[in-house]
Each structure stands twice: as C-alpha cells, then as structure tokens.
C-alpha cells in the first residue's frame, strides 16, 4: 500500500463515503423492519470498501452498472441520498420518480445505469457501454459491478469474450461475498479464485482484499488508467463479506457463526478506522464525521417522508421517449 502518499483529507473522504453507505443502510434496515418503508431490500453492509474504492477511481463521464444490491454503488458515485431515500419510499422526488424502488436505483446523470435486478443482466450492458465509448473515441470507461453468483451466468462468459476480442474499456468488478443468496460459492464453482475465469478470455484477472479500501482504490486506478489508454478490460475480484441478510428479513442462518464473527472483525470500516488512528487521525475527528453523516441521513429521511407520492396515473408515463 502506498498509504503514505495520501493526504489526511483524501483518507477521510474514503472514510466518510464508507460510513455514509453503512449508516444509510442501517437506517434503511430499521425503516424497513419497522414497516415504514415498502418493497424489498438487498443491502450492502460489509462491502463498502468495494464501491468506495472502485468509484473513487472514476471520472465524470465514466459509467457503472449495478445490481439488485445497488445502494452502496449509488452513494459511492455521488448520487444524492435524498433522492435515493425518496425512491425507497416510492416518492415522486425519488431518483426514478418512484418507478424503480430499491432494486432499480440509479441516475444516469451521475453515471449509474438504473440497477439491474436480473443477475448477470448488467454484464453485457456494461460491455456495450464500453463498446460505445470505444466506437465514439470517448476517453471513458465502464465499470460492471456484479456478485460471485453472477459469474455463473452465460452473460458473464459471453461478455468477457467480446470485451477481450474487441479490447473494450470495461472493468469487471466481482464482489465475492462468498454467497449467492443462501448458496456458498464452493457449491457452485470449482475455481479457487473467480479471477481465474478471466484468463480463459485472456483478460487480466486480479484477486485482492475487498475490505481494504486503499488497496481497492489503487487496483481500480491501475485498471481504469489502462482501460482509458486503450489497454483493454480487466477483471478485479474483491474478497468481501455481506454482514447482513441477503434480502428483507433474512437472518442468514446459512452463514456459520464462526465465519460471521471473523467477518465482523475484518469488516472494512473497522479496519479503516484502525488504520486512520494509526496514522494519527484523532478519535474526535472520526466520531464527528459519523455524526455529520447521521445528520445528513436524517435530513434525507425527513425529505423523503415529506415528499409527495406520484399520482396514481403517473403509472402511465415514462414508457416511450
């Protein structure tokens, strides 16, 4: 880690974004369980370093695709949490005007294609965005977020092959949290590292600790620079863990207690907090950021609650351009 190169300001920016995601998700979970929030949710607690590390390596004009678990990616791309919270409540001020909900969250103006809740569905789309960038000679990259489970879909293999053959500026980011829903990766694939799969398409594949935000950032930076300068696609596998249920009220009883315990010790925010302290950042500063973030989230909740619902007839809008 080239940690000495980072200013305290930049490090605190990483911290702030990760905490914003964590606190957002915890608040959403509460609102959902309490019955205030409708729908279903797939949450991102434990994987914050992945979104923040990767998205911090992007520039304006770059585009990501996200999944059924999009909240973290949206926040890391700088989406307005007010519009996200409003979307979760189905309000007209939401980022998708209440049409999308949790699973389809996104904002193309912020470089986020609306969340694609069909597992593997986003992989060819990100590939096509990269294809478009190349065809139009644009200096941008596409990032495709996916889970371990998605790499078993045919779309993964078809997409990687095309990206390789056409040398596209796409970064495939596989967040390996060990489970696809309740199914452990070891039950559904024999490769030890998912990044090995990239080699079948002659794409560089890297596996790193996805809970180390700086490591993720640096690895993403390198892949992004390479793609931007015509060097083609990269697959980055981020080893991480989901420290919440798969969806809704899932108690995740399929995760062994020992494994969960270890994961909690290794979760990205705790890990990064120790690092910040070791760098001489004071506890007070760290705490004050968390407090600021909580206030920001309460404002978003208030905004969302006070916002209007769409009109019932709004159902009929937005179908065709």
């Amino acid at each position: 880690m080239k940690e000495n190169y980072y200013s305290t300001e930049q490090l605190l920016m990483f911290y702030r974004k990760m905490v914003l995601i964590r606190e957002f998700e915890e608040r959403v979970k509460f609102l959902f369980l309490e019955g205030t929030m409708p729908g279903t949710i797939h949450q991102y607690q434990g994987q914050e370093a992945c979104a923040v590390g990767v998205c911090s390596a992007l520039k304006k004009g770059d585009i990501i695709t996200t999944t059924h678990r999009p909240h973290g990616h949206c926040i890391a791309m700088g989406m307005d949490i007010k519009s996200m919270m409003a979307e979760l409540f189905g309000k007209v001020t939401g980022c998708c005007r209440g049409k999308g909900g949790s699973m389809h969250m996104g904002d193309i103006e912020k470089g986020v294609v609306p969340g694609i809740a069909i597992v593997g569905g986003g992989i060819p789309i990100a590939t096509g965005i990269g294809f478009g960038f190349k065809m139009k000679n644009m200096p941008n990259v596409a990032v495709c977020f996916m889970g371990d489970g998605a790499t078993n879909e045919g779309t993964f293999h078809e997409s990687l092959n095309m990206a390789s053959v056409w040398n596209l500026p796409v970064i495939y980011v596989v967040e390996n949290n060990l489970y696809g829903a309740s199914t452990h990766v070891s039950l559904v694939m024999k490769v030890e590292k998912i990044s090995e799969r990239a080699s079948a398409y002659r794409i560089p594949g890297i596996t790193i600790d996805g809970n180390d935000v700086i490591k993720v950032y640096e690895t993403a930076m390198e892949a992004v620079e390479k793609a931007r300068s015509g060097g083609g696609p990269t697959l980055i596998e981020l080893l991480t863990y989901r420290i919440t249920g798969h969806s809704r009220r899932d108690p995740a009883a399929y995760q062994p207690p020992e494994e969960k315990k270890k994961a909690l010790e290794n979760e990205p925010i705790k890990k990064f907090t120790s690092f910040l302290l070791s760098r001489g950042v004071s506890k007070e500063i760290i705490e004050s950021i968390r407090e600021e973030v909580k206030i920001e989230i309460e404002e978003a909740v208030k905004y969302a609650m006070e916002s209007e619902y769409p009109l019932p007839e709004d159902t009929l809008n937005d179908l065709f351009a």
Partner: peptide, 12 residues
C-alpha cells in the same frame, strides 16, 4: 406498462 414500484402506482 411494466409494473411500477411505488405503492401508490402499484395499487393503480
């Protein structure tokens, strides 16, 4: 149309 998310529209 596709199914909308918001409960208000879903009811409609």
């Amino acid at each position: 149309t596709p199914a909308p998310f918001s409960p208000v529209m879903e009811k409609f």
